[in-house]
Simulated scan of single mutants.
Amino acid sequence: MFKILNVLSIIIIMSVACSNNAGNGENNYPAPPSETSLIVNGSGQKSKGSEEYFTGNVEVEAIIPPNSSSHFSIAYVTFQPRARSAWHTHPAGQHLIVLEGIGLTQEEGKPIQEFRAGDVLYCPPNVKHWHGASPNSYMKHAAITGVSNGSGVTWMEKVTDEEYNDR
């Protein structure tokens, strides 16, 4: 767990540094907290993953929204076995840190890859992909999603069973 927290800290620091240097002068984000804040495990805003964007049982726990100094959000996402996202892209990229279980991901036109607890997945900006749980294991990841022009994701069509099973 210490290794995962170190990786998370490095990614957050890198994301803040990149977002602070990429400004275009326009900023519609809320101000960041004025003091150190602690978010207690399990206290994020939990919701069921929308059936429009996910197949299967998915829980999304929103942890941190973007703000004027950190142009990214953080959420925990838990996929039950065989659950997955729809195809999508991220205009400012996304980092996934797998906390528990076994997951699958696929970039359009490439083979499906398996990833496990402790692995970190980087999804480059505007690259079409999906991710979710393996057929026999749930998967929970921390998603650090860059935000550009107020958007962190562009959703597309659902991943079919044939695409999911194409391994």
Rank of each mutant, 00 (worst) to 15 (best):
residue 89 T to M: 06
residue 85 S to H: 02
residue 91 P to Y: 03
residue 96 L to P: 06
residue 95 H to M: 14
residue 94 Q to V: 09
residue 98 V to P: 03
residue 96 L to I: 14
residue 99 L to W: 07
residue 96 L to G: 12
residue 103 G to M: 01
residue 87 W to D: 01
residue 92 A to Q: 00
residue 84 R to S: 04
residue 92 A to F: 04
residue 79 F to G: 05
residue 100 E to K: 15
residue 96 L to W: 09
residue 100 E to Y: 03
residue 97 I to M: 12
residue 101 G to V: 09
residue 93 G to Y: 06
residue 97 I to S: 08
residue 92 A to M: 04
residue 93 G to M: 10
residue 85 S to K: 05
residue 103 G to C: 03
residue 86 A to R: 03
residue 106 Q to M: 05
residue 97 I to W: 00
residue 106 Q to T: 00
residue 104 L to W: 12
residue 74 I to G: 14
residue 101 G to R: 09
residue 98 V to G: 14
residue 104 L to H: 14
residue 75 A to C: 14
residue 97 I to A: 12
residue 83 A to Q: 10
residue 77 V to S: 06
residue 105 T to L: 12
residue 104 L to S: 07
residue 77 V to W: 05
residue 90 H to F: 00
residue 78 T to A: 07
residue 93 G to H: 10
residue 78 T to P: 03
residue 83 A to W: 14
residue 97 I to P: 04
residue 87 W to K: 11
residue 85 S to N: 02
residue 100 E to W: 02
residue 102 I to C: 09
residue 102 I to T: 12
residue 90 H to D: 02
residue 103 G to I: 02
residue 105 T to V: 15
residue 96 L to R: 09
residue 74 I to K: 04
residue 82 R to L: 13
residue 103 G to E: 02
residue 84 R to F: 09
residue 96 L to F: 12
residue 79 F to H: 02
residue 98 V to T: 13
residue 104 L to D: 06
residue 105 T to E: 14
residue 77 V to F: 09
residue 88 H to C: 05
residue 81 P to G: 07
residue 98 V to D: 11
residue 102 I to F: 04
residue 94 Q to I: 08
residue 98 V to E: 12
residue 90 H to K: 03
residue 93 G to K: 05
residue 89 T to R: 00
residue 78 T to E: 07
residue 94 Q to G: 07
residue 86 A to K: 08
residue 102 I to Y: 01
